[in-house]
Simulated assay, not measured.
Amino acid sequence: MIEKKWYEKFYENYSNQYDRENFVIGTEKEIDFVEKEIDYNKDIRILDVGCGTGRHSIELAKRGYDVVGFDLSKDQIQKAREKMRKNNLDIKFYVMDATDYEFENEFDLVLMLCEGGFSLVGHDDLDDKILSNASRALKSSGKLILTAPSAIFQIRYNKNINLKTLREDFEFVKTDDDGNKEKIKANQRYYMPTEIKRRLKELGFTKIDVYDCELGNFRRVENSEFNTFEILVIAER
């Protein structure tokens, strides 16, 4: 039997807890930003990679957008579907792996927010695969908006980061929806803005902007200092 990855363990039986996390309170304002980035065009199709319990997908659908969302976690997708039905929405939610899906030239916008699976896998080749899959899913004039954990922030504030690999090994205790506690060993990869830009250029993106990423306050910031846990990346063909 193949042992589950740490992030698979983390999201098992965690959908209710997930929806109580502090970072979910910024969803509406984050979608305000996304809407502005797409000129409020309701004719486009949007793919939400690593959608979790569907918070961004559902908010977009409420505003009239055509959205498809997927996540590796069955538990998270089940919760997303429950929330979708409760809101009388029609969203296609799938259980899929960001490293292995086959949408091609179908979407005008791909979102990978709150890391959306990116960097959690802990292997550069798989992270490259995630970016490659997102690129392939986009139409020729598509846009990608993603957030990724910032190496600059970690170098400033985290003594445990490996400066050669830009990785960190750590442990944390998860409390699931039934109150059970489990110690999980994790590995996180952090990214420099320059390497994200390089990888996306290799995939054919010609305009790539990187900014600070404040939860609930996504914005294009002049002279970004990269002093937030995540960076916000906006890439266009």
Rank of each mutant, 00 (worst) to 15 (best):
M1Y: 13
C114Y: 14
E236S: 13
K29W: 02
R45V: 03
M192E: 09
R237M: 11
E222A: 12
R55S: 02
K83P: 11
L232T: 06
F107V: 06
D176T: 12
G142I: 00
N22A: 15
L163C: 03
K5T: 01
A98Q: 06
G116W: 00
I196D: 00
L120E: 00
I31G: 02
T228G: 05
K207Q: 08
E21T: 08
L111A: 00
R237A: 11
V221D: 04
K164D: 15
C114G: 08
K86H: 14
I231G: 00
K83I: 14
E115Y: 13
L146D: 02
C51V: 04
L113G: 06
K183C: 04
S119L: 07
E106Q: 11
D125I: 13
S224I: 03
K159F: 05
G216D: 02
E8I: 08
T228D: 02
A137Q: 04
E102W: 11
S73M: 04
T53N: 00
E222T: 10
C51P: 06
K62Q: 06
N187I: 15
M1K: 13
R81N: 14
I152N: 05
M84Q: 12
K29H: 04
W6R: 11
I234M: 00
N158F: 10
K83H: 11
Y40M: 04
D128W: 01
E82K: 08
T194R: 13
R136G: 07
T194H: 00
D177N: 12
N88L: 15
D127C: 11
Y14K: 04
R55Y: 05
Y94I: 13
K159N: 08
F10T: 12
D19T: 03
D124G: 10
N105M: 10
S141M: 15
K74A: 06
K86C: 12
D90G: 07
G52D: 01
V121T: 10
D176Y: 04
N187Q: 14
G179P: 10
T147P: 06
K181L: 08
D90C: 08
G216V: 09
N22W: 12
K201Y: 06
D48F: 01
Q78F: 07
T165K: 06
N105E: 07
E195R: 12
F10D: 07
N16E: 14
K79C: 05
S141N: 14
L72R: 01
E102I: 13
E8L: 13
E171C: 15
G216P: 05
L232H: 09
M84R: 04
I46W: 04
G69W: 03
T53S: 06
Y11M: 02
G69F: 00
D43C: 11
V233F: 01
F170T: 12
Q76P: 09
L138Q: 02
F172R: 09
